[in-house]
Design a protein around this nucleic acid. Structure first.
Length: 549
DNA sequence: CTAGGGTTAG
């Protein structure tokens, strides 16, 4: 039974020393091994083999062995097989095995849960948890930490509930459960419970302390975070990076840089964090300088670093650097990273090179909502309205669900192409077909669409129907339409016009000026000046990218 | 065989 074509070399050795193996396991057994013993040995070795294969990433041989020896597979073998499928993102196969396994233990349930956690499917996770309880399986510390991390963005409310169960079972002192709970309470922005859970963990390790640091920085308690950092029994590179990132998240870029410079050592993550900080502040010069220092310190950039830098290139039109980064990405073998391709598409469209954007887009093997959004948005930005709509059609045909950003892009494509009917159709279908409620931006697009097309009445009606108070964008779009089609009366007759926005007054002034209503113009201009309004400065992207401005 | 802490895209 131990002879098998799939047995790797080290097991051939085991087979050769069969006697030793036999004596070691069953020292008192007769020379001729009974069938029951053989079966036991076989199960042990099959399970070990499957585990070895999976550890080596060899899912196919593992599955072959598994399928060909059903009698030698115990629950551990089944669980290992499920783990293997999950590691290879084969959730369907994992689920299929889980459904037909003869005996499930707590590990089987936990493994499936971690799978759904990986695929970001909190509903399935939730479902599995109740099934598990119905089946009479008792959740353990693994179950709770998986559940807690899976529920962070969807079932936040369940965090205290799970906490109750955890206290009941007595698992609150487990470091894994504890740090998962701390993350949960950080999401709930509950500082008191965060500290409470931290105190309940009797033997804290460095991850526990780091979780507290994350909690404090996320909630904006920078002083507490700094004190924690200074009093921690030990700090590692993760603690340092957490603190730097904490200052960045709270817009204290200089303090972040101060800590960053004090770091005893830096890795890709810490460099990327600091670079991202500067990109967020639109301080692209420092971001690039830091990137160069990073390369000089012999730290290799990863896909996080590249996407951050591409974001910078998109932000300030550094076309050359963007191109160079694309070459680096191709060389580094990271070009199939979904996020990177999406960042590349965005960089190309914002630098005016829609053709390259399409090249990247078409080279992608897997596309998600964000990637489709970036190409549709790119088409819209380049005035390719029809193309944007046809890409949208392809997206839905490919089974990728649109979201609210998709519709902002689709509607703005309609605006650029003057496609009123199509725009109306999509505006309605977003709720009816996908249940996406239109937000302010969607209304802005529609107002813009009607305004540009000269249907100012429809635009006004839409503004009145809107479920929220219009912002500067909506008023701006409406007034732009009025200006374009000389609707002087409509513009001046608007009630509740956004009086707090000086840009709105500037547009009104322009409309009145064109009509020759100078009295009103002067009156409004004085009003704007009294409020301390300034004339908007014009800027050029070219000047910006040359560093002139 | 299953679980925790720091960086990414529209």
């Amino acid at each position: 039974m131990l002879t098998h074509p799939l047995l790797p070399k080290r097991y051939q050795v085991l087979r050769a020393s069969w006697g030793v193996f036999h004596c070691h396991l069953f020292p008192r057994s007769p020379k001729i091994i009974s069938p029951a013993c053989l079966c036991q040995i076989s199960t042990l070795s099959t399970t070990n083999l499957i585990q070895d294969y999976i550890r080596d990433g060899n899912i196919n041989d593992a599955r072959k062995l598994f399928d060909e020896n059903p009698a030698s597979c115990n629950t551990v073998a089944w669980n290992s097989m499920i783990t293997g499928h999950i590691r290879h993102n084969q959730m369907q196969s994992a689920l299929e095995l889980f459904d037909r396994m003869p005996v499930r233990d707590v590990v089987s349930w936990n493994t499936m849960m971690s799978g759904f956690n990986k695929t970001n499917d909190p509903h399935k996770l939730h479902q599995l948890f109740s099934q598990m309880n119905r089946a009479g399986e008792r959740p353990n510390q693994f179950t709770f930490s998986t559940m807690l991390s899976g529920f962070l963005n969807s079932f936040d409310v369940l965090v205290p509930q799970l906490h109750g169960l955890i206290l009941h079972i007595g698992l609150h002192s487990n470091i894994f459960v504890g740090s998962a709970l701390m993350r949960g309470y950080t999401h709930l922005r509950d500082r008191y419970s965060l500290c409470r859970v931290f105190d309940d963990i009797l033997t804290k390790d460095i991850s526990t302390w780091n979780a507290l640091l994350v909690g404090y920085t996320d909630l904006g308690f920078l002083t507490e975070a700094q004190i924690t950092f200074d009093t921690m029994p030990e700090v590692n590179i993760i603690s340092w990076t957490t603190l730097v990132n904490g200052y960045i998240k709270n817009k204290k870029i200089n303090q972040a840089r101060h800590m960053f410079d004090k770091m005893p050592q830096k890795n890709v993550v810490s460099w990327t964090t600091m670079i991202k900080g500067y990109v967020q502040q639109e301080n692209y010069t420092n971001a690039i300088q830091l990137f160069i220092s990073m390369l000089n310190s012999n730290t290799h950039p990863n896909h996080f670093t590249f996407s951050t830098l591409l974001d910078a290139c998109a932000g300030c039109s550094m076309f050359l650097l963007g191109n160079q980064l694309h070459s680096c990405i191709l060389k580094s073998g990271l070009c199939q990273e979904l996020v990177l391709s999406t960042a590349l598409i965005d960089m190309y469209t914002k630098n005016g090179d829609i053709k390259s954007a399409f090249t990247v887009f078409e080279s992608m093997k897997a596309k998600n909502t964000v990637s489709w959004n970036s190409i549709i948005g790119g088409c819209a930005m380049h005035g390719l309205a029809k193309r944007a709509l046809s890409e949208f059609k392809k997206m839905t045909e490919n089974g990728v669900n649109p979201d609210h950003v998709t519709y902002i892009n689709v509607l703005s494509a309609c605006v650029h192409g003057g496609l009123v009917e199509e725009g109306e159709w999509h505006f309605h279908s977003m709720v009816e077909r996908y249940g996406i409620k239109p937000e302010m931006k969607h209304y802005t697009c529609m107002v813009d669409l009607y305004g540009k097309a000269g249907e100012v009445d429809k635009a006004v009606r839409l503004v009145k129907e809107m479920p929220f108070e219009p912002d500067a964008g909506v008023w701006g779009a409406l007034l732009a339409g009025c200006g374009l089609h000389s609707c002087y009366e409509v513009a001046n007759g608007l009630e509740n016009l956004g009086k707090d926005y000086s840009s709105i007054y500037n547009m009104l002034i322009k409309i009145n000026g064109e009509k020759g209503a100078w009295g009103r113009v002067i009156e409004m201009r004085d009003g704007v000046m009294e409020r301390g309004g300034k004339k908007q400065k014009a800027g050029s992207r070219i000047e910006f990218s040359l560093g002139v401005s």
